[in-house]
C-alpha cells in the first residue's frame, strides 16, 4: 500500500512538473511537441518488456504490446525529427 502512495505522489508531481515545463510553447512548435510527446508515450515499451510469459496468452499479449509500443517509439521519434529539421529561420 505504501508503495502506491509513494508512486501516486510521483505521478502527481510529474503532472505538475509537466504543466509548468510546457505552459509557454510557441504555436510553431505545437505539432512537434505533440509528436515528440507521442513518442515518449511509447515508454509503454518498458512496461511491455516487464510482462511475464507464463502461458500462451501472456506470450501473445506481450508480443503485441511490444510491437505496438515499438511502432510508437520508432515512428514517433523519427517523424518528430523529420518535422523539426524543416523548421528553419532564414538569415
Amino acid at each position: 500500500m505504501e508503495v502506491y502512495i509513494l508512486l501516486g505522489f510521483v505521478l502527481l508531481l510529474s503532472i505538475f512538473l509537466g504543466l509548468e515545463l510546457i505552459s509557454k510553447v510557441p504555436s510553431t512548435l505545437h505539432t512537434p511537441l505533440m509528436s515528440g510527446a507521442n513518442a515518449i508515450s511509447g515508454i509503454a515499451l518498458v512496461g511491455a518488456l516487464m510482462l511475464s510469459a507464463e502461458g500462451q496468452i501472456q506470450n501473445v499479449l506481450a508480443f503485441f504490446a511490444i510491437l505496438f509500443a515499438s511502432i510508437n517509439v520508432f515512428g514517433g521519434y523519427l517523424v518528430t525529427n523529420r518535422m523539426l529539421s524543416m523548421f528553419k529561420k532564414k538569415s
Partner: peptide
C-alpha cells in the same frame, strides 16, 4: 507504470499527459 510499480513509466507518461492537456 503504477500497475507495474515502475517509476520511469509514471514520470514519462505524466509528462505526456500534461503536455497533451496543455495543448
Amino acid at each position: 507504470g503504477l500497475l507495474l510499480l515502475n517509476n520511469v513509466l509514471i514520470v514519462a507518461g505524466s509528462l505526456v499527459g500534461a503536455s497533451g492537456l496543455i495543448l
